[in-house]
Amino acid sequence: MHMTPDKFAALADPTRLALLSALATGEKTVNELTAPFDMSQPAISRHLKILQEAGLITRRIDGTKRPCRLAPDGLEQIEAWANMMRRTYTANYDRLDQVLASLPKGDAA
């Protein structure tokens, strides 16, 4: 599976993770998202632009407001990649367990 780095890069920043968490409860305006941060509205807008470009959020125009919401399929690619990695690691550890179990037991003295 090909995983594009833009989603991971977008998620690597704690402010962007906090913005996604805030959007988990529903659509919010940029001003609503800015309120809990010690950051300017333009700085929050730059973070939102990165999240939007990564396909993690969507924005719409509502008069002078630009409400944001989580993109419906934004995390699917990351979830699929994580599941593939989980299966790979599980298979590797299972093989390691088999090899270790087949080794002769040493004397415990």
Rank of each mutant, 00 (worst) to 15 (best):
T15N: 08
L56F: 02
T15C: 09
A43V: 05
N92M: 14
D62A: 12
K49H: 07
D73T: 09
P42S: 02
M39R: 15
S45G: 10
S45V: 04
T64D: 14
T25S: 14
R69N: 10
T29R: 08
D62L: 13
L17F: 05
A91N: 10
A91F: 02
A10I: 05
K105T: 13
A101S: 13
L96Y: 05
S102N: 07
A54G: 04
A24L: 08
K65D: 14
A43R: 12
M1F: 11
D94T: 11
L11Q: 05
S21D: 15
D62Q: 15
D38K: 11
A9H: 14
L75G: 07
I61E: 14
A82M: 11
I57R: 04
R60T: 15
I44G: 00
A91R: 13
L23S: 02
S102A: 15
R66F: 09
C68W: 02
R87S: 14
A10R: 03
S102L: 03
L11K: 03
T90N: 05
A43F: 04
P36E: 01
R16V: 00
P14G: 06
R87C: 05
C68T: 05
R46Q: 13
L17M: 12
N31P: 02
D13P: 03
T29M: 04
E27Y: 06
L20I: 14
R95A: 15
E27L: 06
